[in-house]
Amino acid sequence: MSKNVIWAVEGSIKEGQRAALNTVMHDMIEVTSKEVGSLNYEWTLAEDGSTIHIYERYADEAAAKAHLTTWGKNAARFIAAVDISRVVIYSSVSEELKASFAGAVMMTPIGGFAK
């Protein structure tokens, strides 16, 4: 199975915070696109105009951990604009990485492939 580390973040944009979200999203996409091992970083918006999902895939756990440094630099701005409702991790990860995601839903891969 893939050694990729994959997670998704789900949340709702806070009232009056769409412009702030757009700013932090732009900044985070720009810096994440330059990270070694960052494979996917896709932000999507539901038809309701307030529900967002962010799909993230990293080459391995080292790349995922490196991204958490970027997250740490932007977390306060993101959390000021979004109420995070759920984080789902779709990979087997170390206890150290799990600890970075308190309350996340942990999914264990049981089959499939990545190309």
Rank of each mutant, 00 (worst) to 15 (best):
A8V: 14
L97S: 10
D60L: 01
N22Y: 06
H53D: 05
E42Y: 11
G11H: 01
M107R: 13
K98I: 06
W7H: 14
A102H: 09
E61F: 00
A80K: 11
N74A: 09
S2M: 11
G37P: 02
Y41N: 05
W7K: 07
L45M: 15
K14M: 08
A8K: 12
G49T: 01
A19W: 04
D83G: 05
S38R: 00
S38W: 04
T69S: 11
V31C: 05
N74L: 12
A75E: 14
I52N: 01
L21Y: 15
E61C: 03
I89T: 11
L21F: 15
K73E: 14
S94E: 05
I110K: 10
E10S: 12
V88Q: 08
H67M: 02
A62G: 04
E96W: 09
N40G: 00
E61Y: 03
E30V: 09
V5W: 02
M25E: 13
A62M: 05
L45V: 11
S92T: 13
A46E: 13
E42L: 13
Y55R: 06
I89F: 09
A102W: 00
W7I: 03
K98S: 12
H67D: 00
V87G: 04
V88N: 09
K34D: 10
T70P: 03
E30A: 12
E96N: 10
N74M: 10
E35P: 00
V82K: 01
E47G: 08
K73M: 11
E30T: 14
E61S: 00
E61Q: 08
A99V: 06
D27S: 14
A81T: 03
W7M: 12
N4W: 09
V105A: 11
S85E: 12
A19C: 00
A80T: 08
K14W: 03
G111F: 12
V88P: 00
A59D: 08
S12C: 06
I79R: 11
A8E: 12
K65E: 14
L45P: 01
A62K: 14
A20W: 02
G49V: 03
L45F: 01
V31T: 15
K14N: 10
T23V: 13
W43F: 15
S94D: 09
I29T: 13
G37F: 01
V9R: 08
G112H: 04
A46H: 10
